[in-house]
Amino acid sequence: MQAGLSFEQLTNDEKHQHFMDRINRGEKIEADDWMPDDYRTSLIRLISMHGISEIMGALPEKEWVPKAPSLHRKLAIMAKVQDEMGHGQLLLRVAEDLMAPLGKTREDIMQDLFSGRLKFHNVFHMEAPTWGDAGMIAWLVDGAAIISQSMMLDSSYGPYARALKRICAEEVFHAQHGESIILALAEGTPEQRALLQDSLNRWWKSLIMFFGPKSAKETGNSNADKNIMYKIRTKTNEDLRQEFFTKYIPRIWALGLTIPDETIHFDEETRMWVYEDVDWKEFKQIVSGNGPRSQDRLDLRRRSYDSNGWVRDALAAQKAI
């Protein structure tokens, strides 16, 4: 910064340069700091999508909360889903701070969700018809989430990095809870093992999709590249997917399960996993609200929003007094 000039007197380009210098020095950006508009909008997009995914992500597991097959499992899955809701709340708070200068609130986030403008993770659009799915979601979906979120623990945006720290710590417990369900089924009766294999078959494609397309080519979207430039994230989608394979494929095989992809193998030469890619047009369809359970789950949210309208009015009236 030039001597004698206050920050406000700088041109936008100079402010931008100053901002990039801070990021490149590894400094954390805080909610009240100056930031480029596209940094703010990238963060709002990423964090509100992450937050609302946690909240929508509670719904497929919710289906299994009352049905969990022992007192211990009932307690564990209740705790787990409560954590997810808590993560959603924490993240929406972070997003709300970023949205405040734009005059937007939580209400806008909810309305964007209902109208389909705000998307949530592909996995939470899918069906979870058996108890095996409750285990699979906690083990592999949460396992995938840990991998993609851990990369952002050092995100340039301080409030997000701090929220992720707590979230990742809890996600580790969730993955253990999931692994414990999976192990019980894997060591159980032939029916229980079949339940498990069936569930893996159902979730595999969604897990590949979870990390997003390899590059902007597949869906014509370059958010990931921008987020890397701004040091919001540090790895590409494919890096993360490969990490996931390295961590989980040996474990899946060790349980005697079959991955529903005959081509999958580790290529010693490229040191990469080779696998059958998915149809990214289908991914786009799913996250646009056309997955098998997208509308049912949105409908649950809308319905509770409508039937609790009187409670919001009552609380608002109380506040006004």
């Binding site: 909240i55 509670a58 719904l59 919710k62 909360v65 009352p66 009932k74 307690l75 209740m78 705790a79 889903v81 409560q82 809701m85 808590g86 959603g88 709340q89 929406l92 649950l300 949210r301 319905r303 509770s304 609790n308 409670v311 919001r312 609380l315």
Partner: peptide
Amino acid sequence: GSEWLGLAPHIEEDVAFSSINQ
């Protein structure tokens, strides 16, 4: 109470109510 999960009047209450049920 666990049937209410995801349906409470706001997200903060969803967290609190599910903690109570647990």
